[in-house]
Design a protein around this nucleic acid. Structure first.
Length: 801
DNA sequence: CCTGTTAATTTTTTT
DNA sequence: AATTAACAGG
């Protein structure tokens, strides 16, 4: 029996019970087993607001999932009456699967997801009430930036004085604070700068409305507007969500706070979980006051503190407590553990960044190869404040042959080649999407330049039509004379793509593959391969393939929903997820791409060292943690040194970093390091100095009174001051990125040099060279015409003769 | 219209 | 150091 059948069957089994709300109680002992008194109390809490202050490693996720299971099985709460909100999609997926383990497929009827994902469901349903069309699009950061820029030029504001990035973040902050454009203008008054930003804000908002689109902040802003202005809508959701749970409450912004207030106002069964000491997202609107003021805001609330830490040794915890206690204005809280003292924290004062890197690499090798230890690469993480620091580590790890993987940085859907494909798909689906058109009309190059595009935008505005429509009738406009033929060819191509979409004769993955190849996007990358380029075209072709696997997976995922619908558990908001026709499937695929950044699946059992920023390590834990670059100016960063609030946030970041370690923590620094291309001498981070001496062993120098580099102490070339540090170079590590298995195209390519093949357009020819790429191959073929072509074998549909 | 060059600019990150 | 935006020449 495959998974799909299992889901249907178990959903059917549980269905009658669901309807009668008398799902037989899961054994209560099972839900409470192994919980400490505070955890058990939180799980069993009945009605009324509840604040769970959950320190790092205190079993927070366990408490939430068990509480939800408890509500369903012991208190007869229907799964559909539960709304659980997480900070990331990844956390949501994790929560879903853990709840499913406890209560079975009933969990599928719960609303579990991020604020944005949940609100978007509601907004689509009631889009008309807010003056949007149901099909409104979600803009990504790139699009947002572009619109801001066009606003600035339109208003004739100097882009130097008004950096688009800064303006955008001000507008974003305003929206998160629920300050609309009008109110912003009123508050700005005569202030030169603010009044101008207000103008941009208002114009920006007009543009979004005109193009029927929202940015991320609008999703929250408009959701608040919907619920505040439409009591009947609010009442429906207030009724529906009898129990609301919010994870990572310390990272909520004002708009999210409003939403929580509104939705929970009827049943008042709001449970928030968080740790004020782990609030590290204020730079994007998170308001730590939300959690600090919870008791004031939700009168009569119960507060439960989870202070017992199950993750780290006493040594690590002492260090963490010592650092965080320097912060003022936090909830009194002190983590403790019943586990042993553990190993001392190792502090390293290296001469420079390469010595730091070599030390870490050597130490990792020592840990992993040590005879007695069960320490594997997968138990080790290297954390840093800035992504840029990963570079110097990379080379050291590579030299020592240590397998590693860097997380973060470029996200999958943000890659240029992926956004290009998505751009095509967007334009095909919504021919009025001028932003998408502008993104792709020059990819691949088709002889349409900036001047033409400007004309195009102007004409589209004048005629009140979409830019694609103007392209289609380009010959009519004398202004477009020169490029008319090319514009019409482009419009023709898109319309051809659209007919194929509407023909509905392909699966999503097949269709995307068809667009990738017909648009010439693949061919462009194939052509670049070989020419020395900054980005490796082979990687980019792999990414295009990976998008296909993603589409395949997505299509499979919708089957679960259908199973759920058969069980009658699907909310009205999700009914259109059932549509099976290609345009609808594509629409939801694009929506997911806009909302879900993480495609970077980390399979936990993969044996490599993990490198990431402290931010992305939040919520994770590792046996051994290296915290690198612990220097003033880097961590805390020089930009946060001016005001106390920022320093406190950096300190919380340090707290998060330290508490990731289960058994052993290393903190490393360098006396001199390249920062933004300049060698700088930096002193030891204040956070490292706040750790009590009895927790530490120091290598290479003291934490105190060791400010910059000292002359004459630079590390001897090649050698090292540290014992046990092997000389460089062993073997080149295997390719770290696991090749994405593409179930559909995974059969091996059976082509080699010298074979004769037939191509639908170019006729037959002989393969001159063949180079494997991501389950496919780039082949160079000499055709009978004498012409040489470079092609991607599978995409070109070559027939072997 | 395209492409190769110089000049300028640097957090953290998810949605 | 490295990426990206503005710029000039083919």
């Amino acid at each position: 029996m495959d998974l799909f059948d299992q889901i249907i069957e178990s959903a059917q089994q549980s269905q009658p019970q669901l309807q009668q709300h008398r799902r037989p109680a899961t054994d209560p002992a099972r839900l409470l087993a192994g919980l400490n008194p505070q955890q058990a109390e939180a799980v069993q809490h009945g009605e009324g607001p509840l604040l769970i202050l959950a320190g790092a490693g205190s079993g927070k996720t366990r408490v939430i999932t068990h509480r939800i299971a408890w509500l369903v099985s012991m208190r007869g709460v229907r799964p559909s009456e539960i709304l659980a909100i997480t900070f990331t999609n990844k956390a949501a997926a994790e929560m879903k699967s853990r709840i499913e383990d406890l209560v079975g497929p009933a969990s599928l009827a719960m609303w579990i997801g991020t604020f944005h994902a949940m609100m978007l469901r509601i907004l689509r349903r009631f889009a008309a009430l807010l003056g949007y069309d149901r099909s409104f699009t979600i803009l990504d950061v790139d699009d947002q930036q572009k619109i801001i820029k066009s606003c600035l030029t339109e208003l004739n504001y100097d882009e130097k004085a008004f950096a688009p990035k800064v303006v955008h973040s001000q507008i974003s902050a305003a929206k998160n604070a629920l300050t609309g454009a009008d109110q912003y203008a009123r508050e700005a008054g005569q202030d030169f700068r603010l009044s101008r930003i207000a103008k941009v804000y208002s114009l920006y908002q007009d543009k979004l409305k005109k193009s029927n689109s929202m940015d991320f902040d609008d999703i929250l802003y408009e959701a608040v507007r919907l619920l505040s202005d439409h009591p009947e809508v609010l009442a429906e959701y207030q009724d529906r969500f009898r129990y609301i749970l919010v994870d990572e409450y310390q990272d909520t912004n004002h708009a999210q706070y409003r939403l929580v207030r509104l939705l929970s106002d009827r049943h008042r069964n709001l449970c928030v979980v968080g740790d004020d000491d782990q609030s590290i997202y204020s730079f994007r609107g998170a308001n730590i006051q939300n959690i600090l003021d919870f008791e004031k805001d939700f009168k009569g609330c119960k507060v439960i503190k989870l202070e017992q830490n199950y993750r780290s040794t006493a040594m690590v915890l002492n260090a963490a407590n010592a650092v965080i206690k320097e912060n003022k204005g936090r909830k009194a809280k002190k983590l403790w553990t019943s586990s042993g003292a553990g190993e001392l924290i190792t502090f390293l004062r290296a001469e420079n960044h390469s010595e730091e890197g070599r030390y870490i690499a050597a130490e990792i090798n020592r840990l992993v190869t040590r005879a007695d230890s069960a320490c594997a690469y997968r138990d080790i993480a290297v954390l840093y404040r800035l992504n840029a620091l990963s570079r110097s580590l990379e080379s050291a790890l590579r030299e020592q042959g240590i397998p590693y993987r860097i997380f973060g940085g470029m996200r999958f859907y943000d890659r240029k080649e992926i956004k290009d494909v998505l751009g095509y798909l967007r334009l095909i689906l919504l021919p009025g999407d001028d932003l998408a058109l502008n993104r792709i009309i020059q990819v691949p190059r088709r002889g349409i330049g900036d001047m033409t595009l400007e004309q195009l935008a102007f004409l589209a505005a004048r005629e009140g039509k979409s830019q694609l429509a103007i392209c289609a009738e380009a010959a009519v406009y004398p202004e477009l004379q020169r490029a008319a033929a090319r514009l019409q060819a482009f419009a023709g191509q898109i319309s051809q793509f659209r007919s194929r979409l509407l023909a509905n004769d392909l699966s999503l993955a097949e269709y995307i593959e068809w667009v990738e190849s017909e648009s010439g996007l693949v061919q462009e990358l194939v052509d670049q391969q070989g020419k020395s380029r900054l980005d490796d075209p082979v990687d980019r072709i792999e990414n295009l393939k990976e998008l296909l696997s993603d589409a395949l997976e997505f299509t499979a995922g919708r089957q679960e929903l259908r199973a759920l619908d058969q069980a009658g558990g699907l909310a009205p908001e999700d009914q259109d997820l059932l549509a099976e026709d290609l345009p609808s499937v594509l629409a939801s695929f694009l929506e997911r791409a806009a909302l879900y950044a993480e495609m970077d699946e980390d399979r936990e059992n993969q044996d490599y060292v993990r490198l990431m920023t402290i931010h992305s390590a939040k919520g994770l834990e590792f046996g051994t943690v290296f915290l690198v670059g612990a220097e003033e100016g880097l961590f805390p960063g020089y930009r946060s040194m001016e005001n106390e609030a920022d320093i406190e946030e950096e300190r919380r970041l340090a707290y998060v970093a330290i508490t990731r370690a289960k058994r052993k923590l290393y903190i490393t620094t360098a006396r001199s390091r390249l920062v933004f291309g300049q060698t700088q001498n930096l002193s030891v981070s204040r956070f490292a100095q706040e750790i009590p001496s009895q927790c530490l062993e120091e290598i290479g120098g003291s934490r105190f009174r060791d400010t910059g580099a000292e002359f004459g102490r630079s590390a001897q070339a090649g050698g090292s001051r540290f014992p046990g540090m092997p000389e460089q170079n062993r073997r080149i590590p295997d390719l770290i990125r696991p090749a994405a298995p593409n179930p559909r195209t995974s059969s091996p390519i059976d082509l080699r040099k010298g074979d004769t093949v037939r191509h639908a357009r170019f006729g037959s020819g002989r393969i001159v060279s063949c180079e494997p790429v991501a389950g496919d191959a780039i082949v160079i073929i000499e055709f009978e015409s004498g012409e040489r072509k470079r092609l991607l074998a599978r995409m070109a549909n070559l027939e072997k003769i």
